Amino acid sequence: MFHRFFIPADLYSPHIPLGSPLTEGLSLLRATGLEVVEVKSEEHSFRIDGAKYRAAVYTDGDRVKSAWYDDPAGRGTARGRARKIELYLSRYGQLSNWEQRMENGWMRYWYNPVEGVSMKYGIHMDVIRFNEYHGA
């Protein structure tokens, strides 16, 4: 666990494909063995909270529109955080298709128009959210 904190080799959180049926997203969350909690707020979501990571899926009717990860992997160093971001980006498309277009001091924004996905990275909280992306 010590080395994973500094430079992660793998991710342990579930990969929740965007656009998948909500039943599939919920099944992937349940497969972790953690309790799945429904969060009814402005954005309807289902969440798991564990010792190794926290994750959530956001819904659009009966499908997954976003996936959120609070993963401490790599949190100990800048190099570790960069490696974690690379691992997560690789989950949702080829690295060569991603480009960081913006940073505002709080968030970094990556876009992958080829696979139709965007990612927001919260710089201070070290959290990641993937969203469906339909822009250019």
Score class of each variant (00 low, 15 high):
G80R: 07
T77A: 04
S45N: 07
R47G: 09
G74K: 03
A67N: 02
A78Q: 10
I48F: 04
R63D: 06
W68P: 02
K52V: 11
D70H: 07
R63M: 10
A73Q: 01
D71F: 00
G50W: 07
Y69V: 04
E42C: 12
A56R: 08
K65F: 08
G80C: 08
R63K: 10
D70P: 03
T77N: 01
R47I: 14
S66C: 08
S66D: 09
E42R: 15
R47N: 09
Y69D: 00
A55I: 03
A73Y: 02
D62N: 13
A51C: 13
V57L: 09
D70G: 10
G74L: 02
A55K: 02
G80W: 03
K52R: 14
A55H: 00
R63P: 04
D49K: 15
E42V: 15
Y58T: 10
A78R: 10
Y69R: 00
Y58R: 13
Y58S: 09
S45V: 09
F46H: 15
D49R: 15
A73K: 01
K52A: 11
A55Q: 00
S66N: 11
E43W: 14
R63Y: 07
D62L: 12
R47P: 05
E42A: 14
V64Q: 03
S66P: 04
D62R: 15
G61I: 09
G50P: 03
G50D: 03
W68K: 09
Y53N: 03
W68C: 05
R79W: 10
I48D: 00
G76W: 00
V57W: 01
R79G: 12
G76H: 04
F46I: 13
R79Q: 14
R75L: 08
I48T: 07
A78N: 08
Y58L: 13
A51N: 12
V64Y: 01
I48P: 01
R47W: 11
G50I: 12
Y53E: 02
V64L: 05
Y69L: 05
I48Q: 02
E42N: 15
A51S: 14
K65A: 10
Y69P: 01
D70E: 07
R79D: 12
A78Y: 09
K52H: 11
V57K: 02
G76K: 08
R54K: 13
A78C: 06
R75D: 07
R47V: 15
A55L: 03
D49M: 15
A78I: 13
H44E: 12
S66T: 11
A78K: 12
T77K: 04
R54F: 04
